[in-house]
Design a binder for these strands. Structure first.
Length: 615
RNA sequence: GCCGGUGUAGCUCAGCGGCAGAGCGCCCGCCUUGUAAGCGGGGGGUCAACGGUUCAAUCCCGUUCACCGGCUCCA
């Protein structure tokens, strides 16, 4: 294939028609900026998932108030239907051109390009270094909108200048743009931080500290239900739960190497307020001081090493819902999805090297079972593998690595799981698999992770006694399914939009007495349901029934049980569902039986009406 | 950490160089209610914190803190 054709090919495979149009819109935006802000220096302006951006250095800071003027100027360019013309310049000519126009970022980009010629695109008055491709003329640009400005480091490097990134979106039709904006509105309504407040799930306090969520009774009920569900499933799958506390000595984390490689993400150590002991060096004092636990592995390894193990016991699966503390950078904290105290559904599996493939497959099954319960069935898998050409980067015997990689691939293949293999993405201690699940709005979240560890077993001198009576070295698998309870809850809140399935709903039924005289019956109903194991409350306020229905509805409580004279008379409840369906009177025993069944099955359904009989 | 934005009652928010506001929630009273807000009254504030400018600062300026949007999806 001739080089120019090959280049065309590379370009055309990398951009869909929509992305191409968005990329062109970015150029039109840059044209407008060049016109409105003389002296603007342009960096890069690619198409992205829902639109495009352009990174620029501008004489002043943009605010959203500037958007209308920029959009108007862009519309003019679109109306003029400027043709996008492509030419190729010798790199020296391009360098001179951009140098002359004081475009240092373009100059830097060209300097990094190996080619003798570079692509140049021009539309109307705007000329840009660009690989393309573009639409034929600016008239082909669809409805667009500027979205937001943000800071972005040049080339993502915090040591380099901070540029202004102007984000926009563009679509082929107005309907698509409207739909996109509607989706953004929907996502906003489902924001777990907003719902967390409205549904009384959790809060934050400056007195406690940033990134440390505090769970209200209803939020803690969710945590409890989620964790005990995973715990039950794990027990069925041969896991044993352990408990290793919240702190460990600095020397433990020095041995595990976290102190050296992970310290930025650890809370500052607890400095004991004491003088050095007789003959104690400052280093020894530090080793003996304490750290909040950022990871469970050193603790679980310590547990493993506290006993002798036979090959017959393996795999040993230690699981723990321990709260870990990580000192995330301030700007990276966000609601429940990025916190400083997090509860991992963590497990460390200690196994013989020949058990890796089988165990990996078992974990994949476990992941699918648990995520499936939450209706998270659409996911993609990324397998992070070593870069085979650079063995120095990886710890340990490379034969073990090669075997591990083929075991992981074989396990995924045998489960019929499609995956993307990312070579060179593996950590120094082992290959790993990450699972990204799509939620109800189609957004991807990284949840489960399964990591092989070929380093710590040796580092901590772990062993088991083999068939031959000799010591052997086990392999470790680190794995988490939800990831962390906090983050997973955040994802679930948005996935469900706060409408938790019956089994997860912190309050499953609100009993609504019509008048004060129905309170005794309401309490009687509540008592009966509670004793059976349902989570119910009575709205005993003196408000009208309408107001109570509204409140329960807004709290997204699955069942509203209205009780008045008729219901008290008939030992019944009048059932209204969160979905706005009014089922009407249902005998209390029937309601109880059916609600318990649906809850026990972890059904996604709120209610089932009996199929018509005798047809 | 860096860039930008925001911070006013429990919540959602208006206001603004000159006495601090609304709706909802809360408390009290009346009403005793039939499937998404009954009526009346009351309490509630260091206007995030600290410093500066000013006769006067919630408002303007600076610093700090917290929150929100971002910080390569590579011409």
């Amino acid at each position: 294939m001739p080089e120019d054709v090959a280049q065309e090919f590379r370009a055309s495979v990398s951009y869909t028609p929509l992305q191409r149009m968005r990329h062109s819109t970015a150029h039109v935006m840059a044209e407008a900026i060049q016109d409105l802000f003389p002296g603007a220096k342009f960096a890069i302006g690619p198409a992205i998932e829902d639109g495009f951006y352009y990174d620029m250095e501008l004489p002043r800071t943009l605010t959203p108030d500037d958007f209308p003027a920029i959009e108007a100027r862009m519309a003019e360019s679109v109306a003029k239907k400027h043709a996008f013309t492509q030419t190729k310049w010798p790199r020296e000519q391009a360098l001179a051109y951009f140098r002359e126009r004081d475009q240092p970022y373009k100059v830097e980009i060209i300097s990094d390009l190996p080619d003798a010629e570079v692509g140049i695109y021009q539309q109307g008055p705007f000329l840009d270094l660009c690989r393309g491709p573009h639409v034929e003329n600016t008239g082909q640009i669809g409805p667009f909108k500027l979205m937001r400005v943000a800071g972005a480091y040049w080339r993502g490097d915090e040591k380099r200048p901070m540029l202004q990134r102007l984000y926009g979106t563009a679509w082929f039709t107005q309907e698509e743009l409207d739909k996109y904006q509607w989706q953004l509105e929907e996502a906003k309504k489902r924001d777990h931080r907003k719902l967390g407040k409205e549904l009384n799930l959790f809060t934050f306090s400056e007195d406690i500290g940033p990134g440390i969520p505090l769970f209200l009774p209803r939020g803690e009920m969710l945590r409890h239900l989620m964790e005990s569900y995973v715990r039950d499933v794990q027990e069925r799958h041969g896991y044993q739960h352990v408990w290793t506390g919240n702190v460990g000595r600095v020397r433990l984390y020095k041995q595990s190497q976290h102190w050296f490689h992970y310290r930025d993400s650890m809370f500052p150590k607890m400095q004991e307020d004491r003088d050095l002991k007789e003959g104690e060096t400052p280093e020894e004092a530090e080793d003996n001081s304490f750290e909040l636990k950022p990871m469970n592995c050193p603790s679980h390894i310590t547990l493993y090493n506290s006993q002798r193990h036979s090959y017959r016991e393996l795999p040993i699966r230690y699981a723990e819902f321990a709260t870990l503390y990580r000192y995330e950078k301030q700007g990276e904290l966000s609601g429940l999805t990025r916190v400083r105290s997090l509860t991992q559904d963590d497990s460390h599996i200690f196994l013989r090297p020949d058990q890796v493939q089988d165990e990996f497959g078992r974990i994949v099954d476990l992941v699918r079972e648990i995520l499936g319960t939450y209706g998270l069935t659409d996911y993609s898998v990324r397998l992070s593998l070593p870069d085979l050409s650079d063995r120095e980067k990886y710890h340990g015997n490379f034969e073990i690595w090669e075997r591990a990689v083929s075991d992981l691939r074989a396990a995924l293949d045998s489960k019929g799981m499609a995956y993307n293999a990312a070579e060179g993405e593996a950590a120094f201690y082992g290959p790993k698999m990450d699972l990204m699940a799509r939620d109800a709005l189609g957004r991807e979240w990284q949840l489960s992770t399964i990591q092989l560890d070929l380093f710590q077993p040796e580092n901590f001198g772990m062993e088991y006694v083999g068939e031959d009576g000799q010591p052997h070295r086990p392999v470790i698998i680190h794995r988490a399914i939800m990831g962390s309870t906090e983050r997973f809850l955040g994802v679930l809140i948005e996935h469900y939009g706060g409408n938790f399935p019956l089994w997860l709903a912190p309050v499953q039924a609100m009993i609504i007495p019509i008048a004060d005289r129905h309170l005794p019956y309401a309490e009687q109903v509540a008592d009966r349901l509670r004793k059976a194991g349902l989570r119910v409350e009575v709205d005993a306020r003196s408000d009208r029934m309408n107001a109570k229905v509204r409140d329960a509805q807004m709290q997204k409580i699955p069942y509203m049980l209205v009780v008045g004279d008729k219901e008290a008379e008939a030992e019944a409840v009048s059932l209204r569902l969160r979905s706005n369906e009014n089922i009407g009177a249902v005998p209390l025993t029937l309601f109880l039986e059916r609600a318990m069944d649906l809850s026990r099955e972890r059904s996604q359904a709120l209610w089932v009406t009996e199929a018509p009989v005798g047809e």
